[in-house]
């Protein structure tokens, strides 16, 4: 359905914006390494089913892309552009995010199996793993516009999944309560940022008016 496609494209675009930003500026300043490492954990734990279940070529390719690109970004940040990397401001206590997500996955899952627990863990972790990035944004005060575009596209992706879940509930009679709950949490975390982004974009348009 349309929402799902739009969501996936938005997710894809967010990563392309991020890669473009890093390659063009030859710097990773303003981007939280912690958030990017958490994304590697999110994608690897969620897409373990690549090895066991085949959904579609589209599905597999997207999963491979998300795993590969997240690993690539972390490599860019730690190796290639390491010299310009300042980590002193990226100090969000990530252990609480990981610990909290793990507890949530033990409490809420469809089956008590290794892969299902990890899948649930990845949902909760994804919901909160932008926090170090938002924290860094707040601490440095200003961000390059492009970084905010990245966060916006990333937030939009899960927000678009919400109407997708409504759609699937009515058209396929299918309800994934775990995805919906974690998705709502994720969108809530982004909502403050969305508001600021919206204000900023509006303002910029205002300035550009003749």
């Amino acid at each position: 359905n349309l929402f799902r496609i739009a969501g996936d494209i938005s997710h894809l675009v967010s990563i392309l914006i991020l890669l473009q930003t890093i390659e063009k500026g030859k710097t990773t300043s303003g981007i939280s390494l912690k958030t990017q490492i958490l994304y590697v954990v999110v994608f690897v734990t969620r897409y373990l089913d690549l090895l066991t279940t085949y959904v579609s070529l589209y599905n597999s390719l997207m999963k491979i892309f998300f795993i590969a690109s997240s690993v690539y970004v972390v490599w860019l940040m730690t190796s290639k552009y390491n010299k310009k990397f300042k980590e002193d401001q990226d100090v969000f206590p990530v252990k609480y995010l990981v610990g909290g997500s793990f507890v949530m996955s033990l409490l809420f899952h469809y089956k008590f199996t290794f892969s299902e627990i990890l899948w649930s863990f990845s949902l909760w972790l994804e919901a909160v793993c932008i926090l170090p990035q938002l924290f860094l944004l707040q601490k440095t005060g200003e961000a390059k516009a492009i970084t905010t575009h990245y966060i916006f596209a990333l937030g939009l992706y899960r927000a678009l999944y919400i109407p997708n879940w409504f759609y699937r509930y009515y058209s396929e009679n299918r309800l994934d309560l775990l995805s919906v709950s974690a998705g709502l949490l994720q969108t809530t975390i982004y909502s403050d940022f969305f508001y600021v982004y919206y204000q900023k974009v509006l303002k910029n348009w205002g300035f550009n008016l003749p």
């Binding site: 799902r4 996936d8 997710h11 969620r46 089913d49 279940t53 959904v55 579609s56 599905n59 997207m62 999963k63 998300f66 469809y110 899948w119 999944y161 997708n164 509930y169 396929e172 009679n173 299918r174 309800l175 994934d176 309560l177 775990l178 995805s179």
Partner: peptide, 10 residues
Amino acid sequence: VKEADGHDEL
């Protein structure tokens, strides 16, 4: 309502 079996979303 069907519960999600198999995760076909990203």
